[in-house]
Every structure is written in structure tokens, then in C-alpha cells.
């Protein structure tokens, strides 16, 4: 296998998956029945997206950046929160003496508290991600 074709995909399977835009179509048949109401412009935006014109690529880049910002922000917060716990326990061992209702605080902090918090963070992300996607679809539609 030479250096050059090693990086290339198997053409048939890959093209089938990538579809028509993989081979850069010059012309696109538009079925009239599908373009009711105001979807004329939507169709043009979608074609721009598919063909990745500079506008289309900009749109997708913005969407990805938005989603990544949400994901990274939340993941970072959770990871920092988790990583602070062991070092706190290590440096301030007296936390182990504190109790609520007879149960030491570390047991509550590790055995009970994380699960609702993790679900809550997931719920926030789902809402943000779906809002970004809705905004994107609306923008394409308008």
C-alpha cells in the first residue's frame, strides 16, 4: 500500500454513505411537490449546507462551537467538582468527623449526593443542546 492511497477511503462504500455531495453535484433535481410554502429558501440553505459553501460551513462551525461550549463548560464544572473532593478530604481530615443524622459527611457526599447532581447537569445539557438545534433548524427554515 503506497503512502498516498493508504489515507484514501474505499471509494464505493464511502461515496454511498457520503451521498451525492461527496462527488460535488453540479445540478440538483428539485421536486416541486416538496417545496410548498416558504421552503424555497430553506432548500437553498440546506443545499448550501450540504455543499459546504463558505456560508454553509460557517453555519455548521457556529453550531459545533455552541454545542462544544455547552458540553465543555458542564464537563469542566463536574470534573473540577469531583477532583476537589479527594484533595479536600486529604488536606482537611477533620471533615471525616462531621456527621449529619449520625452519618459522616463524606459518606453522604460520595454515596448519595452525586447522583441527583449528575442527572441535573445532564438535564441542563440536554435542554441547551436541543435549543441550539432548534435555533439552527429555525434559522435554516426562515
Amino acid at each position: 500500500m503506497s503512502r498516498h492511497d493508504a489515507g484514501k477511503p474505499e471509494p464505493p462504500a464511502r461515496e454511498a454513505w457520503l451521498g451525492e455531495q461527496g462527488s460535488r453535484p453540479r445540478r440538483r433535481r428539485v421536486v416541486l411537490a416538496d417545496s410548498t410554502k416558504k421552503s424555497g429558501k430553506a432548500l437553498r440553505t440546506i443545499i448550501e449546507l450540504e455543499e459546504q459553501t463558505s456560508v454553509g460551513e460557517k453555519l455548521v462551525r457556529d453550531l459545533i462551537r455552541q454545542q462544544l461550549k455547552s458540553a465543555f463548560g458542564l464537563a469542566f464544572a463536574v470534573l473540577i467538582g469531583m477532583c476537589l473532593l479527594p484533595i479536600t478530604f486529604y488536606l482537611v481530615p477533620s471533615i471525616g468527623e462531621l456527621k449529619i443524622l449520625g452519618i459522616p459527611i463524606p459518606w453522604l457526599v460520595l454515596g448519595l449526593a452525586p447522583f441527583p447532581i449528575l442527572y441535573g447537569v445532564g438535564w441542563i445539557f440536554r435542554r441547551q443542546a436541543e435549543r441550539h438545534e432548534r435555533d439552527f433548524v429555525n434559522m435554516v427554515d426562515r
Binding site: 455531495q21 461527496g22 460551513e57 455548521v60 453550531l63 438545534e133
Partner: peptide
């Protein structure tokens, strides 16, 4: 060596489902 069609692939991965970009590789 970055694939030439990387933009289209990322579009496919991130575009909201209603836009209909998902293609099923197992059926293909």
C-alpha cells in the same frame, strides 16, 4: 492527511435530525 470531506462529515455528525442528513451505513 485530513480528509478532504471533513466539513461534510462534521455537518453530518452535528446537523439536527429534522434536516435529514443521517445515512445508515449498515443498510448501505
Amino acid at each position: 492527511r485530513v480528509p478532504a470531506d471533513v466539513s461534510q462529515i462534521l455537518l453530518r455528525l452535528h446537523a439536527p435530525d429534522p434536516l435529514g442528513f443521517i445515512q445508515d451505513r449498515s443498510i448501505a
